[in-house]
Design a protein around this nucleic acid. Structure first.
Lengths: 200, 200
DNA sequence: CCGGTTACAATGCACTCGCATGGTAAAACG
DNA sequence: CGTTTTACCATGCGAGTGCATTGTAACCGG
């Protein structure tokens, strides 16, 4: 073998070029040639690391997922359940350029995952598998707050987690198209949390 | 002029073919040739009614909007604010084939509106203009329920409307990819409304 | 030192795309 | 009646697509 190369690093490098292209021109703007150009490599190299375009897109989604996960996990440590929930949610919302970038790319994949072709079902599968963990995390925090007496015990943790997450997801697009300014988004989140964390 | 033709009817006919194509193959699957074939007309005719593809997509989105608006408006009359809110929300969620169809097509447009090309800003503009009216309607219902003593007066109607609508929008995609069954979606909505319509 | 495998690069191919062009038929209008 | 305008249809063009093919250089194991 020539040149000892880090396979995964190359693939990540290309995946990030895909992200940038999706952000700039949407899913349609992603062609093998454009990706190669954006990544600063030859088209043959892209083909060398990905057998098909679909395989490339799939890894691009996986990489986006891990990217976001890492960032969320790296959020400053929080002690209270409420702070954990708050920062966890805010990390998913397009409040700065970085999160805006991720939200846009994620939205593109989401739309693609709704269609009915082989790639779409793979994408949908990826998105689905992550959901239960996120919901479980939220529900756990809610339960913890309940035992601490910060959230009324009569509330259903899983339903509240469902609502909380759906609410956050539902804020993404209006925020992206500029209907809500970042501080309005934060205000809505805090308002919701205020109502959730009601004195018993 | 030959053949007296209903211009708008033709355009709507083509727009519906676009919807069907987006539902089946996504935005990428929409080409002038495919649209013509799906609509059962010649490609020249599509070009006759739409100068560019973007213009066609734009009208397709407008037509989808009016389609949904008409359906929502035609929902069985409700007397109480709560029933109004409930049916209004459920009409937007993919609970049957028809609404599923609309949700998928709408998602495709949403993703497209997030990109940064000329068409995208038009799409985003269209989506944005509708939002304040929807939120105002929700807020009005909430206010009405407050004066009727069904919702605590301390709650902020606009914030609650924001949360309610974002929550509904956020349920669309998990429901589309099959994470929630239709009855689970309804249960989540009712749970949320239960919590909103708390005895004062 | 030498076959063999790996890591690319360059090119070509069949196809599809949006759109422009040119033509034809029909109806309104003077 | 003839002219003009409308409503198409068929075809073609240049660009771009994903992917297959072929070539080449580098490095390792024997």
């Amino acid at each position: 073998m020539p040149k000892i190369v880090d396979h995964e690093a190359r693939r990540r490098h290309i995946a990030e070029a895909v992200h940038r292209l999706i952000d700039a021109k949407g899913m349609d703007g992603v062609s093998l040639r454009e990706v190669a150009s954006e990544a600063g490599v030859s088209m043959g190299m892209v083909q060398h690391y990905f057998a098909t375009k679909d395989e490339m897109l799939l890894l691009a989604l996986q990489h986006l997922n891990t990217r976001i996960s890492i960032r969320v996990a790296a959020a400053p440590d929080q002690d209270s359940p409420r702070a954990l929930l708050r920062t966890g949610i805010l990390e998913l919302l397009p409040l700065d350029d970085n999160r805006r970038f991720e939200a846009r790319v994620g939205t593109a994949f989401l739309a693609r995952s709704v269609v009915l072709d082989p790639l779409a079902s793979l994408l949908a599968g990826l998105l689905r598998t992550g959901l239960p963990y996120v919901l479980a995390f939220y529900a756990d925090q809610i339960r913890a707050a309940q035992t601490a007496g910060q959230i009324p015990a009569r509330l259903d943790p899983l339903q509240e987690a469902t609502i909380l997450f759906a609410f956050a997801q539902g804020m993404v697009n209006p925020a992206l198209i500029g209907h809500y300014a970042p501080d309005e988004v934060v205000a809505a989140v805090d308002y919701h949390l205020d109502r959730l964390f009601a004195p018993v």
